[in-house]
Design a protein around this nucleic acid. Structure first.
Lengths: 328, 328
DNA sequence: TTGTAGGCGTTATCAA
DNA sequence: TTGATAACGCCTACAA
């Protein structure tokens, strides 16, 4: 900046004023702008951050080893939703992936180092050390999903997994099925646990523990495996609630192998309303996750904290309506 | 830092030395470390960046509006590959999504503002303004893929789309097919154009322009649509090279609707070896993209530039072997 | 081994 | 409307 101040024959203060808006004469402005163009000058953000005490960037942190980024159909939508809101407010969304122990330490430094003014944290797991870090850092932030041990000062946004699971199970029941099973995935996370709880609640006395197959991940392969287990345990099974669409697609594959027709022999419902849902044959009845809205809402909550607004509601659950198609 | 220097009864210089390594007595170190722990002090990265002139962060930039992040099966693998290499070198990977005009401007600022020491740019399209920015910024960087108008000083890493397309088409020919078509996607990108060129080269005199269906995206829906077009134009078609696995999956769906058996009536081959490939029935013969290696290699190239190494080779093409399964 | 002091590139406050 | 000048928080010679 020194150079361009010299080139334009003014002081650095004046240069700063044309950059950030302020009283400056037309002649001075013209000279400065020309100099900027000629030199190809770009302000140094580190210096600006230092004095301004902000970075105009928001972290979008995915606390998930490896798989989630590749498999979870919602994460991309949430990201894009957040990005468009942040972008409109002229904030840079900075996406950080946690894929190892080493990453965790580095991200902690990053978060506390003034690189970002706030954070959107997509966390599935309970007991993540980052949760504590953010809590003690007083960094304006918001969680997507809500781990059980979430710091009470940090708001969250998500959907009501339990209620939606309950609702779609009821709907499946209403088609006349009587031996309904569930392929429960990732029950160590809040979403997985809630979906299972909703299923159980909907079934009430009809709930039969042997009709629940536990699988570790929300993916296709696990779905197929879970379905085979279920078929083995109860050949008379006539309905399945899969914990996600990918799981449902895997289940349908296993049903096809076993010679069962969907929905004639077995009704299948999923969760997410991801691209899987419209690609299966028959198309999948499922719960719609408003990924875009979730991302946008999360971004908005961080932005509001940045403006000094007091967040009163601890959490928000966005509506996740059922989309009924042909698989049940 | 002032506070903890005071608390430990030393000067700020000494504190800095325990933080960054340097001569400091055991007693002083102990006192300082205790103070740090008690106060919960974390160094301000903006200040450090300013004086050090580096951020220890590398940008991973995806120049793709919206869809790519959700649809491209390789992007996640490339990202994870890059992240593990960067992480091992103690660099923070910072992921930036370009989703609008507005984003482009902001990211330009970000890149030139000292937020990152280097960049990995995943670009598919030609003529992206960012290409110019990076070129003129002299920011150590590398492209994944190689846009035709890439700045000559910036190295790239990718695969040989043309040769691989040619090879798998030959392989399809070798199964005895004679009316082979292609569903060409995204021909406005280098990858799309190269795959089409490879197809054409393999077919030689057998190449028939009417057997090429152009679709805009590498996705399932486009694949189905492209296949329908092809079937309409040439009912006798007995082989199809789909520009990606997702496209191939869509094509197989359309073939099923049309009552054609795969591979008995029509042989299908894809490209990418993504998760699609093993989920289709029959499983897909395709070209394997070493996404992880591409990411790791790209990261390594940036790191080497940062170490001051001179990059001699302009670009590197990693091997992309054919994986032959059941669809042809 | 330690303290002192200059400088990194901006913004912001105050006089002028 | 402008120019000095003091921060911002840290690193690093240099001197002690």
């Amino acid at each position: 900046m020194h150079d361009i101040a010299a080139a334009a024959g003014v002081s650095r203060g004046t240069v700063s004023r044309v950059l950030n808006g302020g009283y400056v004469s037309a002649t001075a402005r013209a000279a400065i702008e020309r100099a900027i163009r000629e030199v190809g000058y770009v302000p140094n953000t580190a210096a600006r951050n230092l004095v301004m005490q902000r970075s105009q960037a928001i972290g979008f942190i995915v606390l998930e080893p490896h798989s989630l980024f590749l498999e979870d159909p919602n994460i991309g939508g949430i990201m894009l939703g957040a990005n468009s809101t942040l972008s409109a407010a002229d904030y840079q969304m900075v996406n950080l992936v946690v894929d190892s122990e080493r990453d965790t330490a580095r991200i902690t430094r990053y978060l506390s180092g003034g690189f970002v003014d706030g954070a959107i944290i997509v966390s599935a797991r309970t007991h993540d050390p980052i949760i504590q870090v953010v809590g003690s850092l007083a960094l304006p932030s918001v969680f997507v999903g809500h781990p059980r041990d979430l710091h009470p000062d940090i708001p969250y946004v998500g959907i009501d997994n339990l209620a939606s699971a309950e609702e779609i199970t009821r709907r499946l029941l209403a088609t006349g099925r009587r031996r309904i099973g569930m392929i429960a995935a990732a029950v160590d996370r809040d979403s997985g646990a809630d979906r299972l709880a909703g299923f159980q609640q909907a079934l009430g006395p009809l709930y039969d523990e042997t009709l629940v197959a536990d699988v570790p991940l929300y993916d296709f392969a696990c779905g197929a495996k879970g379905m085979r287990t279920l078929l083995e345990r109860e050949p008379e099974i006539d309905g399945v609630f899969a914990a996600s669409d990918a799981v449902a697609a895997g289940a349908m594959e296993a049903l096809r192998e076993a010679g069962r027709a969907v929905p004639a022999d077995v009704g299948v419902v999923g969760f997410d309303d991801s691209s899987w849902a419209s690609r299966t044959r028959p198309t999948l009845s499922t719960v719609h996750q408003p990924a875009d809205d979730i991302g946008a809402y999360a971004a908005d909550m961080v932005l509001r904290q940045l403006k000094g607004e007091q967040i009163t509601r601890r959490g928000v659950l966005l509506p996740s309506p059922i989309v009924w198609r042909d698989s049940a």
